[in-house]
Structures are given as C-alpha cells and as structure tokens.
Design a protein around this nucleic acid. Structure first.
Lengths: 110, 110
DNA sequence: CGGAAGCGTAACCTACGGGTTACGCGTTCA
DNA sequence: TGAACGCGTAACCCGTAGGTTACGCTTCCG
C-alpha cells in the first residue's frame, strides 16, 4: 500500500492511470499525450508497475500497459478504514470489497 | 484532490491520519510519537491541513488536530471512479457517497 | 508580572524525485 | 540481413521536499 500511495502522488502518474483505465496502451501512445520525453514516461510506468497499480503485457516489440484494479483496491480499502470511526460497523466496507471481488472473479473467468 | 493525493504520499503523514482518526491530539502529543522534531511534525500537519485532510481547533495555547472525513471522501471517490470500468454502472459509488454523506449530516446536527 | 509551556515560521542543509540525453537490446520487415 | 522501430536503463542535472536549529508570539500559572 505504501508504494501505491507514493505512486499516485504525481499528477502525470494519476493521468496515466485514468488513460489505461479502459484501454491498454503502449509506452509510445502514452508518452505522445504528455509534454515530457518517452524515457520519463517509461520510468513513471515502472513506478506504477512496481506499486501494483498497472500491469504490462509484452507483444512483440510492443509493451501494453493496463490498469490493475487489485492495486487500486488496496488503497481504496485503506481510505475506507480511515474514514470509518472506531464505533462504526464495517458493514459497508465489506459490501464494497465483496462487490469488487465479484467483479474481479467475473473478469478472470471470462 | 491533487493536494490530498500528495499529502498521503508521506508515511509520517499517513501515520498521523491514523492517529487522529478517533481522538483529537495536540501537536506535542503527535510529535512525541515520532523520532523527528516537533517543527517537522508541525509542517506535516500544515500540509495535511491545507489539503483538507485534517482540521484544527484552537483551545488556549493548545491546538487540537482531528481527521476531516470530507477530505478523505474526495480521494475515496476518485479511486472509486478509477476502479470502475466504463461500462459499469456507478450505483455502488453513489451508495457509498450517500452513506458517508448521511453520517456527515448526523455529525453536524448532533 | 515574569517565566515557562505550546506552537508556528524562517533559514539552512541534504537527499531524492523527476527531467533530459545517450545508449543498448530485441523485434519487425523491405 | 541490415536498417528502422519500440522500449528500458544508465548517467547526469536541478528543483524541491523534509530534516534540523533558532527565534518569536500567545497563553497559562506561581
């Protein structure tokens, strides 16, 4: 979780996450949408990858990046428990987790 | 939201957030639990305050810090929309937001 | 009152994050 | 098969985040 919290601190990395939410993109495609060099984007992607927020699939000389919902879920869960006072039952968090877990299963079995 | 995402990047600030989740604490009380100087903690608290994650109540020469759930909710919502694919209905997010908003109203009318 | 307690801020130093260019390796295709 | 493409990494530079000490302003209390 610590690495993920650090990863989303950078505005470029947050923008990348939004980009690869729905479509898988190559490094070049991502870099083309930013005013910084391709190696810089490559390092941002490395940070996101090592923090578990994105995944990469190699295909020939291309490397496709896509969102990894599991990494996001960790952060999401951390924020949930932080927002939840001591006395409050964690029923809602359990519901949220359950729903996302179900979606994940659906993805994997598709 | 951007400021909040930056604020939680630091491990000390994340620990502070967990500390003031249930009880309001003074700067001295917080600083006593870290191996860094009090001015350093004071600046961390300033970052958290300006990012909307904590609130401060002055009482004499003491300054009590407590969690501000509204700030957390923003980040929480951002992660929710990020985890939610394009086709997915946002019913769950709406439910989550509604529940937290209701709790907030209860706090304010108490 | 005057000193101590509690806190914020300024000034300073250092480590590190993020930018760039240069380079090397694997893959494609004319 | 050799040239071009796609990408990762190393080396380097610079700005800034986060640490410290020194200082000043309120607020409490003997």
């Amino acid at each position: 979780m610590d690495q993920a919290a650090e990863a989303i601190a950078d505005p470029i990395r947050r923008a990348i996450l939004r980009m690869v939410r729905d479509e898988r993109l190559t490094v070049g495609e991502i870099a083309a949408r930013f005013p910084v060099s391709r190696p810089a984007i490559s390092r941002h992607l490395r940070v996101l990858r090592e923090s578990g927020l994105v995944r990469d699939d190699l295909s020939g000389r291309h490397r496709y990046y896509s969102l990894n919902p599991d990494g996001l879920a960790e952060l999401h869960q951390w924020l949930s428990t932080l927002m939840t006072p001591a006395g409050w039952e964690q029923r809602l968090d359990a519901l949220t987790t359950e729903v996302y877990r179900t979606r994940k299963d659906n993805r994997e079995t598709a």
